[in-house]
């Protein structure tokens, strides 16, 4: 029998620790699939974040380095400068990239480091129980904003990372996508692939922001979470290519 769709070789054959319906599972597979397709498994080094994807190194079958909270892009900068011929990517959540690691993110992007960054935006701090993150949308209820996030009461507006970084000269590719249906998942796969190709071609910093569900922290079923992304999140975080050079 011929295999039509199978688990990528860059993915270790183990079960994940993610909750049911978590977008991290889909994105771990997509990243591994891109590495397989480009045939760069022996020269890829991933940098895992702190957050729900902290154990990503248990699932990927290539070299993965674990960075301190928020410092994935700083660690990736060091690895890339020591090994310019390797393909380096970071895989970070919104608590890691947009909150504690904002300085590292902005400066790595501004320096135009030739790194690919996969940014998983689930609009909350998933691992610690669903507190408000910088990307929590206005009106969204979390454990620290039980009445919904309100800019009037001093909680601020959600940060649009893809737009923010696209203003920097060092960024060559900035895109926002989502995983709420199979078409979007396949499109996300193409965007991640393009971001890897950019790095191989020696262009600057590439960011792929992915709107991903967190059913456990949102207190929704996996299906309702996907619908919520499509109906609510996409209104504030428009999808598409924001910058391409």
């Amino acid at each position: 029998m011929k295999i039509k769709f199978s688990r990528p070789k860059s993915l270790i054959d183990v079960e994940t620790h993610y909750c049911a319906g978590c977008g991290h599972g889909i994105l771990n597979i997509l990243t591994a699939k891109v590495v397989d397709e480009l045939g760069i498994r022996d020269k890829t080094i991933g940098v895992a974040p702190v957050g729900c994807a902290v154990l990503a190194y248990k699932y990927w079958n290539f070299d993965v380095c674990e960075a301190a909270h928020g410092r994935a892009l700083a660690v990736a900068t060091g690895i890339k400068r020591c090994h310019p011929d390797k393909v380096i990517f970071t895989y970070q959540g919104d608590g890691d990239l947009a909150s504690i690691g904002m300085a590292e993110t902005v400066h790595a992007a501004n320096r135009g480091e030739k790194i690919t960054c996969v940014f998983v935006n689930n609009a909350c701090y998933g691992m610690t129980g669903g507190q408000m993150a910088p990307t929590t949308i206005v009106g969204q209820k979390t454990t620290t904003t039980p009445l919904g996030r309100s800019p009037e009461s001093g909680e601020g507006w959600p940060i649009k990372m893809a737009e923010l970084l696209s203003g920097l000269k060092g960024v060559s590719y900035s895109v926002r996508t989502a995983v709420f249906n199979p078409q979007k998942v396949m499109q996300t796969y193409q965007y991640i692939k393009k971001a890897f190709i950019n790095q191989i071609e020696g262009k600057g910093f590439s960011l792929v922001e992915v709107l991903s569900p967190c059913p456990a922290a949102w207190r929704k079923t996996p299906l309702d979470s996907m619908k919520w992304i499509e109906d609510e999140m996409v209104k504030y975080f428009p999808l598409g290519v924001i910058k391409r050079e």
Partner: peptide, 20 residues
């Protein structure tokens, strides 16, 4: 029909599709 939609959507990667 082997479209692979279930394969792409499964967060666990527990679905594989074979062709006879």
């Amino acid at each position: 029909i082997g479209c692979g939609f279930c394969f792409f959507m499964c967060p666990e990667g527990c679905i594989e599709i074979y062709q006879k």
